[in-house]
Design a protein around this nucleic acid. Structure first.
Lengths: 251, 251
DNA sequence: CGTCTAATTGAAGCATCTCAACATGCGTGG
DNA sequence: CCACGCATGTTGAGATGCTTCAATTAGACG
């Protein structure tokens, strides 16, 4: 449902800013885009597999995910998206969505008509380059997920997922106290890592047992960042961020 | 090593043509790009993880792959690339490669200076849209790989991989007799699907035993296409091809 | 307080891995 | 042409990580 609250248009640059230097002019152009604010309850879909997208989705608050359903009905989450992300930019160029897009927690998003985005890109190629970079980074993260699921065991996968989420949140200015809210149930964590929920539980206990993290509900505290990083074989290069780990206080 | 043989410039459009309608003018513009022909022996790297790409790679012949190496040294192949593909387009927008790019069989590629590509896109936005679409489809295939590895068992994964390879080859005009040359060793098939080589062997025997495929060396014949499709839970929508399966003779 | 979802625990089964050996094919050099 | 070496394919047996099924506990919410 559309809301009347004011939209935080700086969110438009938040994600872009972590990977590229967005000029003042580009910010102004982006801020002028027509936005339709929508509030989503937990689990709500913005887009379903097979639908033809007419708008691009900007996450304002909450955590969203893209997912696919395989033949036997099981779900695979293919990416997580934080405030400032544009999870479905490739919808600008594809006729039908090959995945669903839904809210993992109550979220607010801004819908941007693809027509307006296309016009902006056409008139202002430098903005197009920014968005292309965002799509490219998205692809890079997808590749790392493939490697994560294909070649690491359950504990490593989970550790890697938490590392990625933590670093991305941090880059956006969240999680300053090393406490990160990962609003996923264990079942959803399993959908993201290709593990069954019951086993996620045991893996999380393992991570906690080793003193890497501690949890209370959805809120997780990173107790031993070097250890978690090592356990997850985490190297942030694939995130293509402008800031180094050191600059994020995560040396 | 650079060769002096004539370059088949129609390869420049082959991959694009399967997903988009490339106009005559666009073909002419692409054909004018400066190309540097390079011949690769099996296993040769065009790009290694961490390197800064200066050229984009167009596959002229052979099969190439992008891959990542995880901490313990194991390899995960994240995509396969056929003649007409531009496997590393996102290198246009990223400073450092997050993956390696290598030849799975003796291959010929054409290297296109990124500078020239960027100029072409800037002067001719419609070509930029074509390439953006290619990057978007690339992302879609990555997502399907995540779902494949995360949520299907070994036999399904392998069947799905073969289906994808077969359809993509077919769309390019190969494999008309339902015989497809998949120049991967069982170890490499394992790297692509997240399975160990020994187990790949048993899975291939299973597929052969069910009459889905038959193999002689690297050449595999699809004996039961509907069966293979069913086994691999294969739905080609994610390839975003212009041609339907029916149009490819694979109803 | 009752209901519902999510987290936790246990036990048993199975898919995949691991280790180890042997077979096959292929290119190379004698 | 044969002999050899090496990479790849094949087979077997045992270990294990993850799944499956089932039941219980904890926590959130009206």
């Amino acid at each position: 449902m559309p809301l009347s609250e004011p939209i935080d248009r700086t969110r438009l640059f938040a994600g872009l800013n972590t990977i590229a230097d967005v000029s003042l002019m580009q910010k102004e152009l982006l801020a002028k885009l027509p936005l339709r604010l929508v509030s989503l309850s937990e689990g709500a879909d913005v887009l379903r597999e097979g639908e033809a997208p007419t708008d691009s989705c900007l996450v304002l608050s909450g955590v969203m995910c893209r997912y696919k359903i395989v033949g036997d009905g099981r779900r695979q989450i293919v990416s997580l998206h934080l405030p400032g992300d544009l999870p479905d930019l490739q919808g600008l160029y594809l006729d039908n969505a090959d995945h669903g897009l839904s809210a993992m927690s109550a979220s607010r998003v801004a819908l941007i008509p693809n027509e307006a985005l296309r016009r902006l890109i056409a008139e202002n190629p430098s903005v197009g380059v920014l968005l292309a970079k965002m799509i490219a980074v998205d692809g890079s993260i997808l590749r790392e997920w493939i490697a994560n699921i294909g070649r690491r065991d359950a504990a490593q996968r989970m550790a890697h997922l938490i590392c990625e989420f933590f670093v991305r949140m941090r880059a956006l200015g969240f999680a300053e106290d090393k406490i990160v809210s990962l609003p996923l149930t264990q079942s959803e964590l399993g959908d993201a890592t290709g593990i069954l929920a019951v086993h996620v539980n045991r893996v999380m206990q393992l991570l906690r047992g080793r003193g890497l993290i501690s949890s209370r509900g959805n809120h997780h505290r990173v107790d031993d960042w070097p250890g978690l990083k090592r356990m997850g074989d985490f190297n942030p290069a694939y995130l293509h961020m402008r800031a180094s780990l050191a600059q994020l206080g995560l040396a």
